[in-house]
Each structure stands twice: as structure tokens, then as C-alpha cells.
């Protein structure tokens, strides 16, 4: 079937097999490989993207379901050379190590801050419960999200 999706502000129109998952469409058809696949049970959140502004695990959505929607991946977050505040905070606070969960984690954090612009540390932990990271122990991810919200990070 034919799906038309606006991806990172650019209109795409592609023929895909009906059962194509959105994440495979992004990665294999459109070549946007930042969004990763970490599981097959909608548990890890590595594939999180925004669909019409809402965070979605793109391994659990068919490309067909995103037909007509606007999708944002981490590749679409920075404005030219200027990093999105969440990207900048992840770097500044060492919120990533191997980087595999990071694109999904950043998109989930962007969505979290959209809904709750001044989250407490507990809010951040709860909001990111569906995004797994094996490297950081989450501490610096929480720091990064709090910092991206403009709040002081205790040291």
C-alpha cells in the first residue's frame, strides 16, 4: 500500500508492504536509522518517535497507521546547528553512554516536557518508565531532563 507521512517536516510518499512497522519504514525505506529497535514486546522504548506530537513506540505502529500524520525522529530535532535543549542537556549531563536507547529516550523526554514543562525528578522517572537504558542507571538522564526544563540540577 501507499503511505504518505510527513517525516521531520518533509513529505514522504512510499509503497510499503501492508504489515510494515513504522520503525522499519523509517529505518529501511526512508533511511533514518537513528531510531533503534531494542525489543519485540513494546517494552524498551528505543524506537520512540513523535506522531503528531505524541510519543509513540514505532515498533508497535504500522506505517499504514501513520498515513497522513507528521512524524518527528531525533534527526528532526535540532534546528540546523543548534541542538534542541533536550539534546544539549543529554550531552552536558552525560545522559548517554552507548547511545542505543538515546534517540528514543530523547524523544520520550521531549514529549514528557511538552506535557509537564517543570517536572520533579520523580515525575521524570515515572514519565520515562517505558524507556529502558542499560548503561546510565538513569541518574544522568533524570539530570538531563530536569536541566532541559530550565531547572537547577543539584550536584
Amino acid at each position: 500500500m501507499r503511505v504518505t507521512i510527513e517525516v521531520n517536516g518533509r513529505r514522504t510518499e512510499e509503497e510499503v508492504e501492508d504489515r510494515t512497522l513504522l520503525v522499519h519504514h523509517l529505518r529501511d525505506t526512508l533511511g533514518l536509522t537513528a531510531t533503534n529497535i531494542g525489543c519485540d514486546t513494546t517494552s524498551c522504548g528505543a524506537c520512540t518517535v513523535l506522531v503528531d506530537g505524541e510519543s509513540v513506540k514505532s515498533c508497535t505502529v504500522l506505517a499504514a497507521q501513520a498515513d497522513g500524520a507528521a512524524v518527528t525522529t531525533v534527526e528532526g530535532l535540532a534546528e540546523g546547528e543548534t541542538l534542541h535543549p533536550v539534546q544539549q542537556a543529554f550531552q552536558d549531563h552525560h545522559g548517554l553512554q552507548c547511545g542505543f536507547c538515546t534517540p528514543g529516550m530523547i524523544m520520550a523526554a521531549v514529549s514528557l516536557l511538552e506535557a509537564n514543562p517543570r517536572p520533579t525528578r520523580e515525575d521524570v522517572r515515572t514519565g520515562l518508565e517505558g524507556n529502558l537504558c542499560r548503561c546510565t542507571g538513569y541518574h544522568n538522564i533524570v539530570d538531563a531532563v530536569v536541566a532541559a526544563s530550565g531547572q537547577e540540577v543539584p550536584r
Binding site: R27, G31, T33, A34, T35, N36, I37, V74, E75, L77, A78, L83, Q87, F90, Q91, D92, H94, L96, C98, G99, F100, T102, P103, I106
Partner: peptide, 22 residues
């Protein structure tokens, strides 16, 4: 010192095996 590795990982993602388009 902020890591030099990070910029790629937070903007276009890493180049893990399944990402390779060699």
C-alpha cells in the same frame, strides 16, 4: 569534559551494525 562521541549519537544516531549502509 563533555564527550566528543555524543554529538553524532544525539543528532543522527550511532552507526550500529543494523544501521550500516556500506
Amino acid at each position: 569534559v563533555v564527550r566528543t562521541e555524543d554529538h553524532k549519537l544525539i543528532t543522527v544516531g550511532g552507526s550500529y551494525v543494523d544501521d550500516l549502509r556500506e
